[in-house]
Design a protein around this nucleic acid. Structure first.
Length: 497
RNA sequence: UCCGGCGUAGCUCAAUGGUAGAGCGGGUGGCUGUUAACCACUAGGUUGUAGGUUCGAGUCCUACCGCCGGAGCCA
Protein backbone atom coordinates (compact mmCIF):
# COMPACT_ATOMS: atom_id res chain seq x y z
CA UNK A 1 0.00 0.00 0.00
CA UNK A 2 1.51 3.31 -1.10
CA UNK A 3 0.45 6.76 -0.01
CA UNK A 4 0.36 9.63 -2.49
CA UNK A 5 2.36 12.67 -1.47
CA UNK A 6 -0.67 14.87 -2.01
CA UNK A 7 -2.45 13.20 0.91
CA UNK A 8 0.49 12.94 3.33
CA UNK A 9 -0.85 15.51 5.79
CA UNK A 10 -3.81 13.24 6.48
CA UNK A 11 -1.33 10.65 7.78
CA UNK A 12 0.49 12.71 10.40
CA UNK A 13 2.46 10.52 12.86
CA UNK A 14 1.61 7.43 10.84
CA UNK A 15 3.98 5.14 9.02
CA UNK A 16 3.70 5.42 5.23
CA UNK A 17 5.32 4.06 2.11
CA UNK A 18 5.74 6.22 -0.99
CA UNK A 19 7.41 5.78 -4.35
CA UNK A 20 8.66 8.29 -6.84
CA UNK A 21 11.67 10.16 -8.15
CA UNK A 22 14.39 12.25 -6.54
CA UNK A 23 13.66 15.92 -7.28
CA UNK A 24 16.50 17.30 -5.16
CA UNK A 25 18.93 16.23 -2.49
CA UNK A 26 21.25 17.70 0.13
CA UNK A 27 23.30 15.92 2.69
CA UNK A 28 25.04 16.75 5.91
CA UNK A 29 27.41 14.50 7.82
CA UNK A 30 24.65 13.09 9.96
CA UNK A 31 21.48 13.96 8.05
CA UNK A 32 20.38 13.85 4.42
CA UNK A 33 17.39 15.52 2.80
CA UNK A 34 15.72 13.96 -0.22
CA UNK A 35 13.04 15.78 -2.15
CA UNK A 36 10.80 13.09 -3.58
CA UNK A 37 8.28 13.70 -6.36
CA UNK A 38 5.54 11.18 -7.15
CA UNK A 39 3.41 13.05 -9.69
CA UNK A 40 0.97 14.27 -7.05
CA UNK A 41 3.40 16.48 -5.18
CA UNK A 42 6.86 16.84 -3.68
CA UNK A 43 7.85 15.84 -0.16
CA UNK A 44 11.00 16.41 1.85
CA UNK A 45 12.25 13.11 3.25
CA UNK A 46 14.75 13.26 6.10
CA UNK A 47 17.29 10.47 6.54
CA UNK A 48 19.25 10.46 9.77
CA UNK A 49 22.60 8.74 10.15
CA UNK A 50 21.11 6.67 12.98
CA UNK A 51 19.14 4.84 10.28
CA UNK A 52 22.42 3.45 8.97
CA UNK A 53 21.06 1.35 6.10
CA UNK A 54 18.76 4.04 4.77
CA UNK A 55 21.48 6.67 5.17
CA UNK A 56 23.89 4.60 3.09
CA UNK A 57 21.18 3.92 0.50
CA UNK A 58 20.43 7.64 0.15
CA UNK A 59 24.02 8.60 -0.67
CA UNK A 60 24.23 7.46 -4.32
CA UNK A 61 20.76 8.67 -5.32
CA UNK A 62 21.28 11.26 -8.07
CA UNK A 63 18.57 13.57 -9.37
CA UNK A 64 15.62 11.65 -10.87
CA UNK A 65 16.65 8.30 -9.37
CA UNK A 66 13.53 6.24 -8.75
CA UNK A 67 12.84 4.69 -5.38
CA UNK A 68 10.44 3.45 -2.77
CA UNK A 69 10.76 4.58 0.79
CA UNK A 70 9.07 4.10 4.15
CA UNK A 71 8.93 6.43 7.09
CA UNK A 72 6.83 8.34 9.55
CA UNK A 73 4.97 11.48 8.52
CA UNK A 74 5.58 14.40 10.81
CA UNK A 75 4.44 18.00 10.74
CA UNK A 76 7.47 20.28 10.79
CA UNK A 77 7.43 23.91 9.80
CA UNK A 78 11.04 23.69 8.60
CA UNK A 79 9.91 21.42 5.78
CA UNK A 80 8.67 22.92 2.51
CA UNK A 81 4.92 22.49 2.62
CA UNK A 82 4.97 22.03 6.39
CA UNK A 83 5.22 18.25 6.44
CA UNK A 84 7.97 15.70 5.90
CA UNK A 85 8.81 12.02 6.19
CA UNK A 86 11.33 10.69 8.71
CA UNK A 87 12.75 7.86 6.65
CA UNK A 88 13.22 4.37 8.04
CA UNK A 89 13.87 2.44 4.84
CA UNK A 90 14.97 3.25 1.29
CA UNK A 91 14.67 0.85 -1.64
CA UNK A 92 16.17 2.30 -4.82
CA UNK A 93 14.43 1.17 -8.00
CA UNK A 94 16.94 2.68 -10.42
CA UNK A 95 19.88 4.92 -9.61
CA UNK A 96 20.18 7.81 -12.08
CA UNK A 97 23.52 9.49 -12.70
CA UNK A 98 24.24 12.85 -14.34
CA UNK A 99 20.66 13.90 -14.96
CA UNK A 100 21.02 16.65 -17.54
CA UNK A 101 18.46 19.16 -16.29
CA UNK A 102 19.81 20.89 -13.20
CA UNK A 103 17.88 22.88 -10.63
CA UNK A 104 18.78 26.13 -12.37
CA UNK A 105 17.93 28.24 -15.40
CA UNK A 106 18.36 26.63 -18.83
CA UNK A 107 18.06 27.91 -22.37
CA UNK A 108 15.08 27.21 -24.62
CA UNK A 109 17.04 25.16 -27.15
CA UNK A 110 18.43 22.86 -24.48
CA UNK A 111 15.06 22.43 -22.81
CA UNK A 112 13.28 21.64 -26.08
CA UNK A 113 15.95 19.09 -26.95
CA UNK A 114 15.25 17.52 -23.56
CA UNK A 115 11.49 17.93 -23.69
CA UNK A 116 11.05 14.28 -22.63
CA UNK A 117 12.77 15.19 -19.33
CA UNK A 118 11.67 18.83 -19.14
CA UNK A 119 8.12 17.53 -18.56
CA UNK A 120 9.24 16.40 -15.09
CA UNK A 121 9.65 19.94 -13.82
CA UNK A 122 6.96 21.32 -11.60
CA UNK A 123 6.08 24.13 -13.98
CA UNK A 124 5.67 21.91 -17.03
CA UNK A 125 3.52 19.36 -15.22
CA UNK A 126 1.34 22.15 -13.87
CA UNK A 127 0.74 23.47 -17.37
CA UNK A 128 -0.11 20.02 -18.72
CA UNK A 129 -2.54 19.44 -15.85
CA UNK A 130 -4.27 22.72 -16.60
CA UNK A 131 -4.38 21.74 -20.28
CA UNK A 132 -6.11 18.53 -19.27
CA UNK A 133 -8.67 20.42 -17.18
CA UNK A 134 -9.38 22.87 -20.02
CA UNK A 135 -9.87 20.07 -22.54
CA UNK A 136 -12.17 18.25 -20.15
CA UNK A 137 -14.16 21.43 -19.55
CA UNK A 138 -14.52 21.98 -23.30
CA UNK A 139 -15.71 18.44 -23.89
CA UNK A 140 -18.06 18.60 -20.92
CA UNK A 141 -19.53 21.81 -22.32
CA UNK A 142 -20.57 20.07 -25.52
CA UNK A 143 -21.40 16.69 -23.98
CA UNK A 144 -23.75 18.29 -21.47
CA UNK A 145 -25.59 20.06 -24.28
CA UNK A 146 -26.29 16.96 -26.31
CA UNK A 147 -23.50 17.30 -28.88
CA UNK A 148 -22.14 14.06 -30.32
CA UNK A 149 -18.38 13.60 -30.67
CA UNK A 150 -17.46 12.81 -34.28
CA UNK A 151 -13.92 11.80 -35.14
CA UNK A 152 -13.05 13.27 -38.52
CA UNK A 153 -10.29 11.88 -40.75
CA UNK A 154 -6.71 13.06 -40.51
CA UNK A 155 -5.73 11.93 -44.01
CA UNK A 156 -7.70 13.99 -46.50
CA UNK A 157 -7.74 14.07 -50.30
CA UNK A 158 -7.05 16.88 -52.68
CA UNK A 159 -5.87 20.45 -52.35
CA UNK A 160 -8.09 22.19 -49.86
CA UNK A 161 -10.02 25.38 -49.62
CA UNK A 162 -7.26 27.86 -50.32
CA UNK A 163 -6.65 28.79 -46.70
CA UNK A 164 -3.39 27.55 -45.31
CA UNK A 165 -0.63 25.29 -46.52
CA UNK A 166 -0.94 21.53 -46.04
CA UNK A 167 1.45 18.70 -45.28
CA UNK A 168 1.55 16.29 -48.21
CA UNK A 169 1.61 12.56 -47.44
CA UNK A 170 2.37 9.77 -49.91
CA UNK A 171 -0.72 7.57 -50.21
CA UNK A 172 0.60 4.67 -52.32
CA UNK A 173 1.76 6.98 -55.07
CA UNK A 174 -1.00 9.52 -54.70
CA UNK A 175 -0.57 12.73 -52.72
CA UNK A 176 -3.00 13.29 -49.87
CA UNK A 177 -2.79 15.77 -47.02
CA UNK A 178 -2.91 15.98 -43.25
CA UNK A 179 -6.16 17.60 -42.18
CA UNK A 180 -6.19 21.26 -41.24
CA UNK A 181 -9.78 21.09 -40.03
CA UNK A 182 -12.49 18.49 -39.62
CA UNK A 183 -15.14 20.96 -40.67
CA UNK A 184 -16.39 19.69 -44.03
CA UNK A 185 -16.78 16.18 -42.63
CA UNK A 186 -18.34 17.57 -39.50
CA UNK A 187 -20.97 19.33 -41.60
CA UNK A 188 -22.00 15.94 -43.01
CA UNK A 189 -22.31 14.54 -39.51
CA UNK A 190 -24.27 17.62 -38.44
CA UNK A 191 -26.88 16.94 -41.15
CA UNK A 192 -27.12 13.37 -39.80
CA UNK A 193 -26.94 13.78 -36.03
CA UNK A 194 -27.73 17.40 -35.36
CA UNK A 195 -25.23 19.11 -33.10
CA UNK A 196 -21.78 17.52 -33.24
CA UNK A 197 -18.18 18.36 -32.45
CA UNK A 198 -14.77 17.02 -33.25
CA UNK A 199 -11.58 17.24 -31.26
CA UNK A 200 -8.30 16.25 -32.73
CA UNK A 201 -4.92 17.26 -34.04
CA UNK A 202 -4.72 19.58 -36.98
CA UNK A 203 -1.80 20.42 -39.22
CA UNK A 204 -0.62 23.62 -40.84
CA UNK A 205 2.50 23.64 -42.98
CA UNK A 206 3.09 27.39 -42.85
CA UNK A 207 6.73 28.22 -42.37
CA UNK A 208 5.93 30.31 -39.40
CA UNK A 209 8.04 30.75 -36.29
CA UNK A 210 6.25 32.85 -33.75
CA UNK A 211 5.15 32.44 -30.16
CA UNK A 212 1.59 31.62 -31.27
CA UNK A 213 2.46 28.94 -33.83
CA UNK A 214 2.68 25.17 -33.94
CA UNK A 215 2.77 22.95 -37.03
CA UNK A 216 0.58 20.43 -35.20
CA UNK A 217 -2.02 21.67 -32.75
CA UNK A 218 -5.34 20.59 -31.27
CA UNK A 219 -8.64 22.15 -32.11
CA UNK A 220 -12.14 21.55 -30.82
CA UNK A 221 -14.78 22.28 -33.45
CA UNK A 222 -18.56 22.21 -32.97
CA UNK A 223 -20.97 22.24 -35.90
CA UNK A 224 -24.46 23.39 -35.02
CA UNK A 225 -27.60 22.75 -37.03
CA UNK A 226 -30.02 25.61 -37.66
CA UNK A 227 -27.47 28.04 -36.23
CA UNK A 228 -27.17 31.72 -37.03
CA UNK A 229 -24.30 34.03 -36.08
CA UNK A 230 -25.77 34.77 -32.63
CA UNK A 231 -25.99 31.06 -31.86
CA UNK A 232 -22.31 30.75 -32.68
CA UNK A 233 -21.21 33.72 -30.58
CA UNK A 234 -23.22 32.60 -27.57
CA UNK A 235 -21.77 29.07 -27.75
CA UNK A 236 -18.28 30.55 -28.11
CA UNK A 237 -18.86 32.66 -25.01
CA UNK A 238 -20.25 29.67 -23.14
CA UNK A 239 -17.34 27.46 -24.11
CA UNK A 240 -14.63 29.98 -23.22
CA UNK A 241 -16.29 30.83 -19.91
CA UNK A 242 -16.66 27.14 -19.06
CA UNK A 243 -12.95 26.64 -19.67
CA UNK A 244 -11.95 29.66 -17.62
CA UNK A 245 -14.35 28.67 -14.87
CA UNK A 246 -12.76 25.22 -14.65
CA UNK A 247 -9.26 26.72 -14.51
CA UNK A 248 -10.26 29.09 -11.71
CA UNK A 249 -12.10 26.36 -9.81
CA UNK A 250 -9.48 23.59 -10.04
CA UNK A 251 -6.22 25.45 -10.53
CA UNK A 252 -6.30 28.79 -8.75
CA UNK A 253 -3.11 28.05 -6.81
CA UNK A 254 -1.45 26.57 -9.89
CA UNK A 255 -2.20 29.69 -11.92
CA UNK A 256 -0.66 31.83 -9.22
CA UNK A 257 2.37 29.52 -9.16
CA UNK A 258 2.71 30.11 -12.90
CA UNK A 259 2.67 33.86 -12.29
CA UNK A 260 -0.86 34.28 -13.67
CA UNK A 261 -3.12 36.73 -11.83
CA UNK A 262 -6.55 35.04 -11.50
CA UNK A 263 -8.17 38.48 -11.38
CA UNK A 264 -7.45 38.95 -15.10
CA UNK A 265 -9.43 35.75 -15.79
CA UNK A 266 -12.23 36.67 -13.41
CA UNK A 267 -12.83 39.79 -15.50
CA UNK A 268 -13.77 37.55 -18.43
CA UNK A 269 -17.56 37.74 -18.25
CA UNK A 270 -20.31 37.57 -20.85
CA UNK A 271 -21.17 39.35 -23.00
CA UNK A 272 -17.79 39.61 -24.69
CA UNK A 273 -16.99 42.73 -26.68
CA UNK A 274 -18.35 42.47 -30.19
CA UNK A 275 -18.12 44.47 -33.39
CA UNK A 276 -18.18 43.99 -37.13
CA UNK A 277 -15.08 44.09 -39.28
CA UNK A 278 -16.19 47.48 -40.63
CA UNK A 279 -16.64 48.83 -37.10
CA UNK A 280 -13.25 47.42 -36.22
CA UNK A 281 -11.68 49.23 -39.16
CA UNK A 282 -13.39 52.45 -38.06
CA UNK A 283 -12.18 51.89 -34.52
CA UNK A 284 -8.68 51.23 -35.79
CA UNK A 285 -8.67 54.50 -37.71
CA UNK A 286 -10.43 56.52 -34.99
CA UNK A 287 -9.03 59.41 -33.00
CA UNK A 288 -9.81 57.61 -29.76
CA UNK A 289 -7.72 54.61 -30.77
CA UNK A 290 -4.99 57.03 -31.80
CA UNK A 291 -5.25 58.62 -28.35
CA UNK A 292 -5.17 55.22 -26.64
CA UNK A 293 -2.14 54.18 -28.65
CA UNK A 294 -0.35 57.38 -27.79
CA UNK A 295 -1.19 56.80 -24.12
CA UNK A 296 0.10 53.25 -24.49
CA UNK A 297 3.28 54.71 -25.87
CA UNK A 298 3.61 56.91 -22.79
CA UNK A 299 2.84 53.96 -20.49
CA UNK A 300 5.54 51.88 -22.16
CA UNK A 301 8.02 54.73 -21.86
CA UNK A 302 7.23 54.85 -18.14
CA UNK A 303 7.67 51.07 -17.96
CA UNK A 304 11.01 51.45 -19.68
CA UNK A 305 11.96 54.05 -17.10
CA UNK A 306 11.00 51.86 -14.13
CA UNK A 307 12.76 48.84 -15.65
CA UNK A 308 15.88 50.94 -16.06
CA UNK A 309 15.67 51.87 -12.37
CA UNK A 310 15.20 48.25 -11.40
CA UNK A 311 18.24 47.41 -13.50
CA UNK A 312 20.33 49.96 -11.62
CA UNK A 313 19.11 48.52 -8.31
CA UNK A 314 19.96 44.97 -9.42
CA UNK A 315 23.39 46.03 -10.56
CA UNK A 316 24.01 47.62 -7.17
CA UNK A 317 22.83 44.43 -5.45
CA UNK A 318 25.13 42.42 -7.70
CA UNK A 319 28.11 44.62 -6.85
CA UNK A 320 27.42 44.06 -3.13
CA UNK A 321 26.77 40.31 -3.45
CA UNK A 322 29.33 37.86 -2.10
CA UNK A 323 28.16 34.32 -2.82
CA UNK A 324 29.22 33.22 -6.29
CA UNK A 325 25.90 31.52 -7.09
CA UNK A 326 24.02 34.60 -5.96
CA UNK A 327 26.10 36.75 -8.30
CA UNK A 328 25.29 34.24 -11.02
CA UNK A 329 21.61 34.45 -10.26
CA UNK A 330 21.66 38.25 -10.23
CA UNK A 331 23.56 38.22 -13.51
CA UNK A 332 20.80 36.11 -15.01
CA UNK A 333 18.16 38.53 -13.73
CA UNK A 334 20.12 41.45 -15.10
CA UNK A 335 20.40 39.79 -18.50
CA UNK A 336 16.68 39.03 -18.54
CA UNK A 337 15.87 42.60 -17.63
CA UNK A 338 18.20 43.94 -20.31
CA UNK A 339 16.46 41.71 -22.85
CA UNK A 340 13.09 42.98 -21.69
CA UNK A 341 14.29 46.55 -21.97
CA UNK A 342 15.59 45.90 -25.47
CA UNK A 343 12.22 44.36 -26.42
CA UNK A 344 10.39 47.43 -25.19
CA UNK A 345 12.82 49.71 -27.01
CA UNK A 346 12.38 47.97 -30.36
CA UNK A 347 8.66 47.85 -29.74
CA UNK A 348 8.66 51.56 -29.03
CA UNK A 349 10.68 52.35 -32.12
CA UNK A 350 8.19 50.40 -34.26
CA UNK A 351 5.19 51.94 -32.57
CA UNK A 352 4.88 55.16 -34.62
CA UNK A 353 4.65 53.05 -37.79
CA UNK A 354 1.93 50.88 -36.20
CA UNK A 355 0.02 53.92 -35.06
CA UNK A 356 0.21 55.35 -38.56
CA UNK A 357 -0.75 51.98 -40.10
CA UNK A 358 -3.83 51.86 -37.87
CA UNK A 359 -4.91 55.35 -38.99
CA UNK A 360 -4.70 54.46 -42.67
CA UNK A 361 -5.87 50.82 -42.55
CA UNK A 362 -7.70 50.05 -45.83
CA UNK A 363 -11.11 48.34 -45.74
CA UNK A 364 -10.85 44.85 -47.24
CA UNK A 365 -7.49 43.75 -45.95
CA UNK A 366 -7.35 40.99 -43.34
CA UNK A 367 -6.13 42.03 -39.91
CA UNK A 368 -2.54 41.17 -39.08
CA UNK A 369 -1.10 40.52 -35.66
CA UNK A 370 -0.50 44.23 -35.07
CA UNK A 371 -4.08 45.21 -35.81
CA UNK A 372 -5.40 42.34 -33.68
CA UNK A 373 -3.24 43.47 -30.78
CA UNK A 374 -4.39 47.07 -31.12
CA UNK A 375 -8.07 46.10 -31.30
CA UNK A 376 -7.98 43.46 -28.56
CA UNK A 377 -6.00 45.88 -26.40
CA UNK A 378 -8.99 48.21 -26.23
CA UNK A 379 -10.91 45.65 -24.10
CA UNK A 380 -10.22 43.64 -20.95
CA UNK A 381 -12.28 40.69 -22.15
CA UNK A 382 -12.27 38.73 -25.41
CA UNK A 383 -13.38 40.54 -28.55
CA UNK A 384 -15.57 39.15 -31.35
CA UNK A 385 -15.02 40.55 -34.79
CA UNK A 386 -17.69 39.52 -37.29
CA UNK A 387 -18.64 40.16 -40.93
CA UNK A 388 -15.21 40.07 -42.61
CA UNK A 389 -14.76 40.96 -46.29
CA UNK A 390 -15.66 38.00 -48.46
CA UNK A 391 -12.36 38.03 -50.34
CA UNK A 392 -10.38 37.55 -47.13
CA UNK A 393 -12.28 34.40 -46.11
CA UNK A 394 -12.92 30.81 -47.19
CA UNK A 395 -15.46 29.77 -49.85
CA UNK A 396 -17.80 27.95 -47.48
CA UNK A 397 -18.65 30.99 -45.38
CA UNK A 398 -22.14 32.34 -45.94
CA UNK A 399 -22.39 35.71 -47.64
CA UNK A 400 -24.35 38.25 -45.60
CA UNK A 401 -27.74 38.63 -47.31
CA UNK A 402 -27.81 42.27 -46.17
CA UNK A 403 -24.32 43.14 -47.43
CA UNK A 404 -22.78 40.95 -50.12
CA UNK A 405 -19.32 42.41 -49.50
CA UNK A 406 -19.04 40.49 -46.23
CA UNK A 407 -19.58 37.01 -44.80
CA UNK A 408 -21.32 35.81 -41.63
CA UNK A 409 -18.20 34.83 -39.73
CA UNK A 410 -16.64 35.43 -36.35
CA UNK A 411 -13.16 35.61 -34.95
CA UNK A 412 -12.54 35.75 -31.22
CA UNK A 413 -9.47 37.64 -30.11
CA UNK A 414 -8.12 36.89 -26.66
CA UNK A 415 -7.02 39.87 -24.59
CA UNK A 416 -3.42 40.66 -23.69
CA UNK A 417 -2.03 40.02 -27.16
CA UNK A 418 -2.74 36.27 -27.31
CA UNK A 419 -4.38 36.66 -30.70
CA UNK A 420 -7.12 34.73 -32.41
CA UNK A 421 -8.28 31.74 -30.38
CA UNK A 422 -11.55 31.03 -32.21
CA UNK A 423 -12.54 31.29 -35.87
CA UNK A 424 -15.90 30.28 -37.26
CA UNK A 425 -18.78 31.07 -39.53
CA UNK A 426 -22.28 30.41 -40.67
CA UNK A 427 -21.87 28.08 -43.69
CA UNK A 428 -23.26 28.82 -47.13
CA UNK A 429 -26.28 26.51 -47.23
CA UNK A 430 -27.61 27.36 -50.71
CA UNK A 431 -26.26 25.19 -53.49
CA UNK A 432 -26.12 27.85 -56.21
CA UNK A 433 -24.42 30.42 -53.99
CA UNK A 434 -21.88 27.89 -52.78
CA UNK A 435 -21.08 26.84 -56.36
CA UNK A 436 -20.75 30.48 -57.36
CA UNK A 437 -18.30 31.11 -54.53
CA UNK A 438 -16.22 28.09 -55.55
CA UNK A 439 -16.11 29.34 -59.12
CA UNK A 440 -15.08 32.76 -57.84
CA UNK A 441 -12.15 31.10 -56.06
CA UNK A 442 -11.27 29.12 -59.20
CA UNK A 443 -11.94 25.81 -57.44
CA UNK A 444 -12.67 22.55 -59.24
CA UNK A 445 -15.99 21.33 -57.79
CA UNK A 446 -15.38 17.66 -58.67
CA UNK A 447 -13.68 16.58 -55.41
CA UNK A 448 -16.34 18.48 -53.47
CA UNK A 449 -19.41 16.81 -54.98
CA UNK A 450 -20.02 14.95 -51.73
CA UNK A 451 -19.90 18.28 -49.89
CA UNK A 452 -22.30 19.86 -52.39
CA UNK A 453 -24.67 16.90 -51.81
CA UNK A 454 -25.21 18.29 -48.30
CA UNK A 455 -26.86 21.31 -50.01
CA UNK A 456 -28.84 19.16 -52.43
CA UNK A 457 -30.55 16.97 -49.84
CA UNK A 458 -32.26 18.81 -47.04
CA UNK A 459 -29.87 21.71 -46.64
CA UNK A 460 -30.44 23.79 -43.52
CA UNK A 461 -28.76 26.86 -42.08
CA UNK A 462 -25.86 25.78 -39.88
CA UNK A 463 -22.47 26.89 -38.72
CA UNK A 464 -19.59 26.20 -36.41
CA UNK A 465 -16.24 27.30 -35.16
CA UNK A 466 -12.87 25.99 -34.07
CA UNK A 467 -11.10 26.80 -30.83
CA UNK A 468 -7.33 26.36 -30.73
CA UNK A 469 -6.44 24.54 -27.52
CA UNK A 470 -2.81 25.65 -27.28
CA UNK A 471 -3.44 29.35 -27.71
CA UNK A 472 -6.26 29.14 -25.18
CA UNK A 473 -4.01 27.32 -22.69
CA UNK A 474 -1.26 29.91 -23.27
CA UNK A 475 -3.70 32.74 -22.65
CA UNK A 476 -5.29 31.23 -19.55
CA UNK A 477 -1.92 30.28 -18.06
CA UNK A 478 -0.34 33.58 -19.09
CA UNK A 479 2.48 31.86 -21.01
CA UNK A 480 4.70 33.69 -23.44
CA UNK A 481 4.83 30.86 -25.95
CA UNK A 482 2.53 28.03 -27.05
CA UNK A 483 5.44 25.56 -27.05
CA UNK A 484 4.93 24.94 -23.33
CA UNK A 485 1.21 24.15 -23.71
CA UNK A 486 1.59 20.82 -25.54
CA UNK A 487 3.66 17.82 -24.39
CA UNK A 488 5.74 17.56 -27.56
CA UNK A 489 5.51 20.72 -29.66
CA UNK A 490 6.00 20.39 -33.41
CA UNK A 491 7.78 23.53 -34.53
CA UNK A 492 9.51 24.64 -37.70
CA UNK A 493 12.86 22.85 -37.78
CA UNK A 494 12.23 20.87 -34.60
CA UNK A 495 11.03 17.26 -34.63
CA UNK A 496 13.09 15.84 -31.72
CA UNK A 497 12.21 14.31 -29.39
C1' U B 1 11.18 33.69 -47.99
C1' C B 2 12.57 38.49 -45.56
C1' C B 3 14.47 41.54 -41.17
C1' G B 4 17.06 41.51 -36.41
C1' G B 5 19.83 38.92 -32.43
C1' C B 6 22.90 34.93 -30.72
C1' G B 7 26.56 30.38 -31.25
C1' U B 8 32.89 29.84 -25.75
C1' A B 9 33.25 23.42 -20.60
C1' G B 10 27.50 18.79 -19.57
C1' C B 11 24.38 23.62 -18.30
C1' U B 12 24.09 29.26 -17.66
C1' C B 13 27.40 32.85 -18.96
C1' A B 14 32.43 36.08 -18.63
C1' A B 15 36.92 37.33 -21.36
C1' U B 16 40.19 46.37 -25.02
C1' G B 17 42.86 42.19 -31.20
C1' G B 18 47.71 39.93 -26.76
C1' U B 19 48.60 33.20 -21.64
C1' A B 20 40.47 30.80 -22.62
C1' G B 21 37.72 31.87 -17.04
C1' A B 22 33.58 31.70 -13.19
C1' G B 23 29.22 29.59 -11.11
C1' C B 24 26.15 25.36 -11.33
C1' G B 25 26.37 20.20 -12.37
C1' G B 26 30.17 15.68 -11.99
C1' G B 27 34.20 13.34 -8.69
C1' U B 28 36.85 13.21 -3.63
C1' G B 29 36.91 14.72 1.55
C1' G B 30 34.38 17.48 5.68
C1' C B 31 29.91 19.21 8.43
C1' U B 32 22.84 16.93 12.76
C1' G B 33 18.04 20.68 9.94
C1' U B 34 19.13 21.83 4.79
C1' U B 35 15.53 25.19 1.66
C1' A B 36 19.28 26.49 -5.67
C1' A B 37 22.87 24.27 1.76
C1' C B 38 27.92 25.36 2.98
C1' C B 39 33.69 24.65 3.11
C1' A B 40 38.14 22.53 0.66
C1' C B 41 40.30 19.95 -3.37
C1' U B 42 39.62 17.95 -8.41
C1' A B 43 38.45 16.61 -13.59
C1' G B 44 36.38 19.05 -17.69
C1' G B 45 37.74 23.10 -24.29
C1' U B 46 39.73 21.92 -32.09
C1' U B 47 35.57 29.07 -28.76
C1' G B 48 29.33 26.17 -34.63
C1' U B 49 32.03 25.10 -39.74
C1' A B 50 35.25 26.82 -43.80
C1' G B 51 38.01 30.67 -45.64
C1' G B 52 40.23 35.69 -45.09
C1' U B 53 42.69 40.28 -42.66
C1' U B 54 46.74 40.60 -38.89
C1' C B 55 53.20 39.70 -35.97
C1' G B 56 48.94 37.74 -33.25
C1' A B 57 41.60 36.30 -33.86
C1' G B 58 36.84 33.75 -29.00
C1' U B 59 37.00 39.04 -30.56
C1' C B 60 37.45 42.07 -37.16
C1' C B 61 35.62 40.54 -42.56
C1' U B 62 32.99 36.83 -46.05
C1' A B 63 30.14 32.47 -46.79
C1' C B 64 27.61 28.45 -44.80
C1' C B 65 25.18 25.71 -40.65
C1' G B 66 22.27 25.90 -36.14
C1' C B 67 19.14 28.36 -32.55
C1' C B 68 15.96 32.55 -30.83
C1' G B 69 12.59 36.69 -31.81
C1' G B 70 9.63 39.24 -35.42
C1' A B 71 7.08 39.91 -40.47
C1' G B 72 4.08 37.36 -44.03
C1' C B 73 0.38 33.30 -42.93
C1' C B 74 -2.51 31.32 -39.34
C1' A B 75 -6.12 28.64 -34.20
Amino acid sequence: MHTSIQTLKEHADQSVRIRGWIAGQRSGGKVAFLLVRDGTGVCQCVVEAAQAEAFAAAAPLGLESSLELSGVVRIDERAPGGCEIAVTEIAPIQIAENYPIARKAHGVDFLLNHRHLWLRTNRQSLILRIRHTLIRAARDYFDQRGFTLIDTPILTPGAAEGAGTLFPVDYFGETVYLAQTGQLYLESACMALGNVYCFGPTFRAEKSKTRRHLLEFWMIEPEIAFADLDTLTSHTEGLVCAMIGAALRDHREDLIALGRDPAALERVQTPFARMTYSEAVDLLRSDETHEALMQGLEADRARLESDAQRLTALEAERAAARKAWKIDKLDAEIRALRDAIRDIETDLSNRPAHIEAARTFPWGRDFGGDEETVLAGRFDRPLFITHYPREAKAFYMKTDPHDPRVVLNLDLLAPEGYGEIVGGSVREDQLDLLQARMAEEGMDPTPYEWYLDLRRYGSVPHGGFGLGIERTVAWICGLKHVRETIPFPRLLGRMYP
